[in-house]
Simulated assay, not measured.
Amino acid sequence: MAIMGSLKEMSLPDVIQMLALGKKTGVLSVTNRENFAYIYFEDGKIIEARLVSKENRIGEILLKNGIITEEDLKRALEIQKEKKIPLGDILVEEGIVDEEKLRDGLKKQIEETLFTLFTWEDGYFNFEPEVYPQEKRVHIQVNPEDILLEAARLFDELKVTRLPDRDMILIPENPDVEMDEKERRIFSLIDGKRSVEEVVAASGDEEFEVMKVIISLLGKGAIREGEKKKLTREKELARIGEHENLGIAFLEMDMLDEAEREFRRIVEIDPSSLSGNFYLSLVKFRKKEYEEAERLLKK
């Protein structure tokens, strides 16, 4: 039996705890209308969690930890385009990482994904039983209780209710506040020009670890958020795949306005995009806007 509802009525930690106690197997889809995530359960344990906007997060995690190189990741992504199998499986099959290191990385991906989702106060969830993720060579199970306890501790410690937008420019405000060594190092990278994403990249550390430091610095008043940084053409094009994945996820949930927004962003970046115009026409058809759907198909 499907379970669905609003995150305003039932928080995500409560939903996860309910599924864990009921030893449920299936997929929990979660959206805050801007992003989309899937959490897969097996007998109440979490076996996979991923944000649609970060399909290859495991590669980034292994890269940041020095387990693979940029060349390794690039080669694995090229193979993935051909074979259409999980990135982690390719890394193991090619002898780039062993199963134990991949297992640690996958666990880290689950933790980071859930910590991000726990900041979503508004949105919707939907649980479908007996739905499994794509079969993988390396299988893990994570106890939700452990993550829920760690998240509660972390959020209480940082007094965090949301994560800063990755495109937001960070501005140094007060260099004299008390900072530990890690905070001081991240603070030195914040120059009033770099966005959150660029500070993370410049640090060379794992994204979520840097985000925790940024949240701490914001809380102390050492830095503040500025305006959103205008994306370069290269970055805009790189995000087309992200918008397409999000749009398809929203379309599958019948969230047509959100799907249209994502596909329209593709067309704004690349007006000649065949997939962007096709999916946009599909949304218009589902909305019974037939003339507009036909016009888009003729493009």
Rank of each mutant, 00 (worst) to 15 (best):
L73I: 04
G59H: 01
V213A: 03
K84W: 01
L12C: 05
V210A: 06
K193Q: 15
L62M: 09
E173G: 00
N35Y: 01
E244N: 10
K83N: 05
G221H: 08
V177N: 03
E60K: 09
I3C: 03
N174S: 12
L163P: 00
V138T: 11
L154D: 05
V97W: 01
K101Q: 13
R185N: 04
E173H: 07
F155W: 11
A49S: 13
D165R: 13
E135M: 02
L149K: 15
E70G: 15
V177M: 07
T25S: 15
I190A: 11
F278M: 14
L189E: 08
R137K: 14
S216W: 01
L12A: 06
A249D: 02
G247N: 09
K288T: 05
K23R: 15
F125A: 06
K159P: 00
D146E: 15
K8W: 00
V213I: 15
E71K: 12
D156N: 15
A37C: 09
T161Y: 06
Q109L: 11
D191H: 12
E198P: 06
E70A: 12
N32V: 03
E178R: 11
E181T: 03
K284C: 11
E234P: 01
V267A: 05
G192Q: 08
R33W: 05
P133E: 11
E150H: 08
S188L: 05
H139W: 05
P172G: 10
